[in-house]
Design a protein around this nucleic acid. Structure first.
Lengths: 241, 241
DNA sequence: TCTAATGGCGAACACCGTTCGCGTCAAGTA
DNA sequence: TACTTGACGCGAACGGTGTTCGCCATTAGA
């Protein structure tokens, strides 16, 4: 039997033996990782960097976590735990789908580029399952057949994760440029418009002519637009209508 | 002015001076990178590994490519060049959108997990632009307003890239397990169904009860399902109807 | 108080991207 | 043809990475 990714226990269950310092438990390590990803991005989350948070070396972490990949999965699930789904209300099912999607998206965006770790995973952690279960419940209550609901949920969460990651890339570039968020984004947008507008019209007529449309609109508005495309496309599968 | 990502020329344009061996040009380096990503995945594409393909050290590459990131972008654009869009046919615009999406998706999937590099980029290479331009033309011909078309294109390509990446993860696990594609995927699917079915029903009722629906369906079918959701959701913006 | 084993972690290994500067080789000039 | 000059290939090194191994201190039990 192939190994399932979720293995809740730790390898060794060490008694809290450390005298001073921070205790160095699995939960504490995950929290440290989340602090780092928030402040410095996922590339900064190295075993050494996390261990440094406890003033120790990287090998100390391996008593609580099998490898870096597991640490990232645990971090992702911890973030999933920050999302609190609502009770299904059949009358508002489409709004509830969007609402849950927005909340999950926001939780990811709040943690910088952690979404990249989520993309590389089939989420099977308890908190991720709680969200999946809630989304499933909302769709089922809205009359979407089980198979369609399962697939749609999969696609929507893929979309959420991908957008959150793309979002973080924009933000990273802004941070690299040293803050001044609004003005820098505006500048980058203007540059892109100029770039598209300067393209040879005989080669790229549609892009060249619609340069502003290509770039325009905030990142949040684009997320919302795609979410609406997905949810609207789901409508035709409901049994009621 | 902030720097635009696409800079078609090389830093130095060395004359083909190498005597024997492979010439070591920008194009040849990109091709070598694509060979490696296809066979060994994007994590194997290191400067050292690419340089080894020319029996030299990594520093030799930096005369033709500013850094690894640029190499990955060039590789992505090269793959985009393998996609040949059709002429817009207003009567079939929705089918054409899907067709172009499928072709681009296939090109990405054919190159293992290269999609990950595409996710980290705002695509501005000439071949990527050719695809964007074609997609834009198809949607405009179908009566989608420019702004909506631009956004929808953005969302659809985000979806394509994310799915291609997720696809590659499945395949990587299969390869790691040493081939036997069908049987291994089936095994992994069964394990997942078993995992979902074994969950406590009072905590995860909807998932537990619909374990088979969660896992069922091929990867290609899921891609198609999401694509249809997106394109169907686009319908309401067309002026004709 | 002595023994045994358990868990923390320093050091090392094999990789990574990137930079620096040396030495070679080809082209240009006399 | 011989010499000078300059550019380019690339070896070596720097500071990072994930992970493993085995020593040592500390603690629990006798």
């Amino acid at each position: 039997m192939s190994e399932l990714p979720w293995r809740p226990g730790s390898i060794r269950r060490p008694k809290p033996v450390r005298t001073a310092k921070i205790p160095l438990t699995r939960a504490e390590i995950v929290r440290a990782g989340l602090r780092i990803v928030q402040r410095e991005g996922i590339d900064a989350v190295s075993m050494r960097r996390v261990a440094a948070e406890f003033e120790t070396g990287p090998s100390s972490l391996y008593a609580h976590v099998t490898n870096k990949d597991e640490l990232l999965q645990l971090m992702f699930d911890e973030v999933c735990g920050m999302v609190t789904p609502q009770e299904p209300d059949p009358a508002r099912w489409k709004d509830q789908v969007k609402e849950l999607a927005r909340t999950a998206h926001q939780a990811l965006v709040d943690h910088n580029d952690l979404a990249r770790a989520a993309l590389a995973t089939i989420p099977t952690g308890p908190n991720a399952l709680r969200i999946s279960n809630a989304m499933m419940g909302i769709m089922l209550s809205g009359g979407v057949p089980a198979k369609m609901a399962a697939w749609a949920m999969d696609r929507i969460f893929l979309y959420i994760t991908a957008d959150a990651y793309e979002y973080s890339i924009w933000r990273t570039e802004v941070v690299d440029a040293g803050g001044q968020k609004e003005s820098y984004i505006a500048q980058l947008g203007e540059d892109l418009v100029a770039y598209f507008a300067q393209l040879p019209p005989e080669k790229y007529p549609y892009i060249q002519k619609n340069a502003e449309a290509m770039v325009g609109g905030g990142i949040e508005a684009r997320f919302e637009f795609g979410l609406e495309m997905l949810v609207d496309g789901l409508d035709k599968y409901t049994s009621e209508s």
